[in-house]
Simulated assay, not measured.
Amino acid sequence: MGAGPCDIYAAGATPCVAAHSTTRALLQSYSGRLYQVRRSSDNATRDITTRTAGGTADAAAQDSFCSGTTCVVTVVYDQSGHGNDLWYQGSSVVPGSSSSSPARATSESLTVGGSKAYSLYINPGNSYWRDGHLTGVPTGSAPEGMYMVTSGTHVNSGCCFDYGNSETTRKADAAGAMDAINFGTECWFGGCSGTGPWVQADLEWGLYSGGSQSWNSAQRAFTSKFVTATLKNNGTSRFAMKGSNAQSGSLYTVWDGGLPSGYSPMKKQGAIILGSGGDCCKPGGGANLSAGTFYEGAMVAGYPSDATENAVQANIVAAGYR
């Protein structure tokens, strides 16, 4: 297997601080756990690993373990070495969380490079979380970047299908307390053109299509089965969002410019969210109403170059999502 996305980011001096996937290894050398499933028949769990170093998920192990019963995904393991595993909110590993449940493990199968795999198929009520502020996730105004591979065919307008940096408090604390990719059909400030789904930035106290509350005319809907979405933010003056078909083509820039008014400097707290907004899933907190699909994604320290992001997109295309 060749270099993975996190090898490419590292070569660009923006190393991964979190890397998650249910489909494949994101580093050439990675041969560990991708995710864990729990079956309903006896509540037993099994870690699903790669089949080879740098390779795809061992879906056959999941099929065997879950045969004749139902399974859910309890955790998506971090491949970066920082220990930023994403457990479902509502589990004992996420203290104080509630109002969330793990996603069903067998909702969607696919192939990656010709090998069977399963997605993390998130419906309203499913979300995953990690407090990573002490384990490498950028905080405050430190620059960061991220990407995910998602789907344009399983989306809704519920708040909020996010992947990225979120509050450790799980409260809507301040403008700039979040820095996460959002993908869906939610039109936060109104005036949207078309029906999406769009790559937007959840920066807290607002879901931004560009650098202001006005609709960004450069926005584009990404409706393909597999979609690459990227976000990077230098923490003080600039952020950029891109998207593409994850099976072919290059990244399209939907925004590359100034932060919205009131968001400089950023006030990131360093938690990681997947499948909900920042103020989700604790007693008295907001409910998770979003739907979306997660195949893979990573967060990096530093502001990735366009060349690095282009190389990551080429790697995703070469991975062969089908």
Score class of each variant (00 low, 15 high):
residue 2 G to E: 14
residue 2 G to P: 05
residue 5 P to D: 06
residue 6 C to L: 09
residue 7 D to M: 01
residue 7 D to I: 01
residue 8 I to R: 03
residue 8 I to V: 08
residue 9 Y to S: 13
residue 9 Y to D: 11
residue 12 G to L: 09
residue 12 G to Q: 15
residue 24 R to H: 12
residue 24 R to F: 15
residue 26 L to P: 03
residue 26 L to F: 13
residue 39 R to M: 04
residue 39 R to H: 04
residue 39 R to D: 02
residue 41 S to G: 02
residue 41 S to E: 04
residue 45 T to V: 10
residue 46 R to A: 01
residue 49 T to C: 02
residue 53 A to C: 14
residue 57 A to Y: 07
residue 62 Q to W: 03
residue 63 D to I: 15
residue 65 F to D: 08
residue 68 G to M: 11
residue 69 T to H: 13
residue 69 T to L: 06
residue 71 C to I: 15
residue 75 V to E: 00
residue 77 Y to A: 00
residue 82 H to K: 06
residue 82 H to T: 04
residue 84 N to V: 01
residue 85 D to L: 01
residue 92 S to G: 05
residue 95 P to A: 14
residue 97 S to Y: 09
residue 102 P to R: 14
residue 103 A to D: 13
residue 103 A to G: 11
residue 112 V to D: 02
residue 112 V to A: 04
residue 112 V to M: 09
residue 115 S to K: 12
residue 116 K to L: 07
residue 122 I to Y: 15
residue 124 P to K: 01
residue 125 G to C: 10
residue 127 S to N: 07
residue 130 R to Q: 05
residue 137 V to R: 00
residue 138 P to R: 01
residue 139 T to V: 08
residue 139 T to S: 02
residue 141 S to L: 12
residue 142 A to G: 10
residue 142 A to S: 09
residue 149 V to I: 10
residue 151 S to Q: 05
residue 157 S to C: 08
residue 163 Y to E: 09
residue 166 S to E: 03
residue 173 D to C: 08
residue 175 A to V: 10
residue 177 A to H: 11
residue 180 A to Q: 15
residue 180 A to T: 10
residue 181 I to D: 06
residue 185 T to H: 08
residue 187 C to L: 04
residue 195 T to M: 10
residue 198 W to I: 11
residue 199 V to A: 03
residue 201 A to I: 01
residue 203 L to Q: 14
residue 206 G to P: 04
residue 207 L to T: 13
residue 209 S to N: 04
residue 212 S to Q: 07
residue 215 W to M: 12
residue 216 N to S: 04
residue 219 Q to V: 11
residue 225 K to C: 15
residue 225 K to F: 11
residue 226 F to I: 05
residue 231 L to F: 11
residue 232 K to S: 10
residue 233 N to D: 07
residue 236 T to W: 06
residue 237 S to R: 09
residue 241 M to H: 06
residue 243 G to K: 06
residue 247 Q to M: 09
residue 252 Y to K: 09
residue 253 T to C: 00
residue 256 D to Y: 09
residue 259 L to P: 01
residue 259 L to D: 04
residue 266 M to I: 06
residue 266 M to D: 02
residue 266 M to E: 05
residue 268 K to W: 15
residue 270 G to V: 00
residue 273 I to A: 07
residue 273 I to C: 04
residue 274 L to W: 01
residue 274 L to I: 04
residue 276 S to D: 03
residue 277 G to W: 03
residue 288 N to I: 05
residue 289 L to D: 06
residue 291 A to W: 14
residue 293 T to E: 15
residue 294 F to E: 02
residue 295 Y to S: 04
residue 297 G to I: 12
residue 302 G to D: 01
residue 307 A to T: 14
residue 312 V to F: 07
residue 315 N to F: 13
residue 316 I to A: 02
residue 318 A to R: 13
residue 320 G to H: 07
residue 320 G to Y: 06
residue 321 Y to E: 03
residue 322 R to D: 09
